[in-house]
Simulated assay, not measured.
Amino acid sequence: MAITTSALKNEYTKRAMHLLGIRKSAPIPKETPHYRMPALEAGGGHLVMRKYSGPEIPPAEWESLEYTTYATDPHTFFAPITSPTGRIELVGACEAGKKDLDCTWTPNAQRCPTIVAWLESIGARFGRVQLLRMSPNTLRECRWGLHLDVNNAANPQSSGWIVRVWLELTDDHSSALLVRRKAFDRSTETSIRLPKYQQAVVDSEKLWHGGHHKGPGVRYALIASFESSPELERWIASQLP
């Protein structure tokens, strides 16, 4: 629709489109027996940690990767480092006939050894891992795009709830992750600043979220799905300010 590329692309028309059924609402996740981490729950679904302090990550480890995107979003690209099929494609676990945490390294993994080392150093089970390449956007566009992820559709209830871990790679004072408890309630919104090497954990199936990046440069960040577990909790505790 043309209105989605005009000045009418804002959270007010978005709400109207939801009410009219033109744009479907994401299903609100129900309470399940999945293990959830108390610290993340107490933090309202997100925790901001210290910056990554390991070996410098060379820009070539994100600039040389093979990227792809969704047909509906020509401004944001993803380089899968793992995927359910092991191929460089954006496919969900259910589509591939797998569980959410069952992923395989893609050819991109060979090009980013420092990033792979960071992932493995966390010591917890992870699934899909993607490198985000994002062009500048406006706050209005960011709020239009706020969404919930579907991380646990094929995650057995005996496993921990899958959450997302962020590692910002480029340095821009304008880069931020907006999170909201309620889709159309701005009073529930928090802006998580993302300078270079900022680490954060977000329950992205609980919190509406979207990236804001004024630019002018391109933003790169690593986004990884991790299982809530004692191992992940220990790593989070070791990284808190």
Results as ranks from 00 to 15, higher is better:
K30C: 05
K30M: 10
E31L: 07
E31F: 06
P33L: 08
Y35N: 04
Y35V: 03
R36C: 10
R36I: 09
R36Q: 15
M37C: 11
M37V: 03
P38S: 06
L40P: 02
L40W: 00
L40T: 01
G44H: 03
G45K: 01
H46W: 12
H46R: 14
H46G: 02
H46I: 04
H46L: 09
L47G: 00
M49K: 09
K51T: 11
Y52M: 07
I57D: 06
I57S: 10
P58W: 13
P59T: 09
P59C: 09
A60T: 15
E61A: 11
E61P: 09
E61H: 08
W62I: 01
W62V: 02
W62K: 02
E63F: 08
S64V: 03
S64L: 12
L65N: 13
E66M: 04
E66C: 06
T68W: 08
T68N: 05
T69L: 13
Y70F: 12
Y70G: 08
T72P: 03
D73K: 07
P74L: 15
T76Q: 10
T76S: 13
T76R: 14
F77V: 01
A79N: 01
T82R: 00
S83H: 00
P84V: 05
P84H: 11
R87N: 11
I88S: 05
L90R: 05
G92Q: 11
G92M: 15
G92H: 08
A93N: 15
A93S: 15
A96K: 00
A96H: 01
G97T: 06
K98P: 01
K98A: 07
K98H: 06
K98W: 00
D100G: 10
C103P: 05
C103D: 14
T104Y: 13
T104H: 14
W105T: 04
W105D: 08
W105R: 14
W105E: 12
T106I: 07
T106H: 10
T106Y: 10
N108F: 07
N108S: 12
A109Y: 05
A109R: 07
